[in-house]
Design a protein around this nucleic acid. Structure first.
Lengths: 228, 228
DNA sequence: ACATCCCTTTGACTGATGTCAAAGTCCTTT
DNA sequence: AAAGGACTTTGACATCAGTCAAAGGGATGT
């Protein structure tokens, strides 16, 4: 269990807690592993607890009746998911699948919620986490309704490019998945990438994309319109 | 101030608290009034606290560079908004305007957050509130990306119709605002309403809409597609 | 090396929705 | 009652993006 406690330190949800509290958390946290593509929970499943990603990547998404998927979030190490059902008492509001081979920590609802009751710091961290997610969702809603696909793609590329420093972006998901993240389909994504290539804004080869004209991309991301 | 304390009882965010806690809340809550159309805060403004609606209606929305607006939420009495900035410490993530003449309670960030630190029950309520909002946003994201406008409209009409019991819906916002809520524009909304009328699914006159064929609407809401 | 499978790309087409413009309707104000 | 203005509706049009279908490319395992 000391193993678990060690991992907790790097998780923002648990930052600033005392050693005794890590101890308490590690007692209730259960480690689980999932193969790539394995389902962690489905929309509507009873929410018996929430998860924190230790390694790998977990995809949180919604599926339409026709089968199209919209990715709500891709959770990497240190990020949590499924917290909503801890507090609303309803089922999970979306599906979760391991996008890569992943290990996660599961915290049962009842045990965790009694922990929160005793520890204001943990509660505040949790609220910050929920708030941050809420902010991200507000941004996603804005993008989906106010920007067209090229704008959303440009914004996402800039986001990825910003983290790397240099202008090269490595997609850590397939292009089909990237399309689902942007709220579109692979064909449309492919066409738009081709257009951006033709204009010299980017150079894409496979899962590698180099940003050639950051300013041009920013323009598209802001206006969110028209690639004539 | 006893006036304020009385109002707190009806707010889900504060349900189940002890009288002493209502007392504490009423000490830090400040009542503010806004005229119809008056701005409460703008996106990016420093988040100095959050609000609870006492009376009226507050519109939370995002604006694109071209001026189109997407409504994130219409807050009625008892609902809170602006909580996100209390915990993230960043600016407000959206704009807020009074859609009707409104009175709200303002809770300053610092005072409220120290209150939370002392009171686990308040913290849990707050988390439930944030979680519920998160769930709603997930639904909105799903609708925006997986359904077309007729599907979103049908779903919203059924939602409104469900509350009233009988099949008559009274829009409490203009059709232009309804369009913004559905992520579209007045012209498109108008056309779709006309289509639904022609097919006998609804009968709309001004701001009154009667649902004639609930099952038909449900079909459109689920499939979210095609009005041939 | 080969075959197979899956992902990606391209093309032709359709349909839904935003844009622009103008006419119509309703409500408020004078 | 009349006038003004805002909201709503309708029409013509442009365009973006989804659908369907097929070809191309790359990786994996035999």
């Amino acid at each position: 269990m000391a193993d678990v406690a060690g991992q907790l330190a790097g998780i923002s949800l648990f930052s600033g807690l005392l050693p005794a509290q890590y101890e308490a958390l590690s007692r209730i946290g259960v480690k689980r592993s999932f193969l790539k593509g394995e389902r962690i929970f489905s929309e509507g499943d009873e929410g018996t607890g929430f998860y924190v990603v230790c390694g790998g990547r977990v995809k949180i998404f919604k599926i339409s009746t026709e089968g199209k998927e919209q990715i709500l979030h891709l959770c990497g190490p240190g990020e949590s998911f499924g917290e909503v059902s801890v507090f609303t008492g309803q089922g999970f509001p979306a599906d979760a699948v391991a996008a890569l081979p992943s290990t996660v920590l599961f915290f049962p609802r009842v045990a965790f919620s009694s922990l929160i009751r005793q520890d204001p710091a943990l509660a505040l961290n949790m609220m910050a986490q929920l708030s941050e997610r809420l902010r991200q969702f507000a941004g996603l809603i804005e993008d989906l309704s106010l920007k067209e696909v090229p704008g959303r793609l440009a914004k996402y590329l800039l986001y990825l490019g910003g983290r790397e420093g240099n202008g090269t972006v490595d997609l850590d998901v397939s292009k089909g998945q990237l399309a689902a993240l942007l709220g579109t389909i692979p064909e449309t994504l492919s066409r738009i990438l081709a257009k951006l290539n033709r204009r010299g804004l980017i150079r894409s080869r496979g899962a590698q994309i180099r940003i050639l004209d950051r300013r041009g991309l920013e323009e598209i991301a802001l206006e969110g319109k028209r690639l004539p």
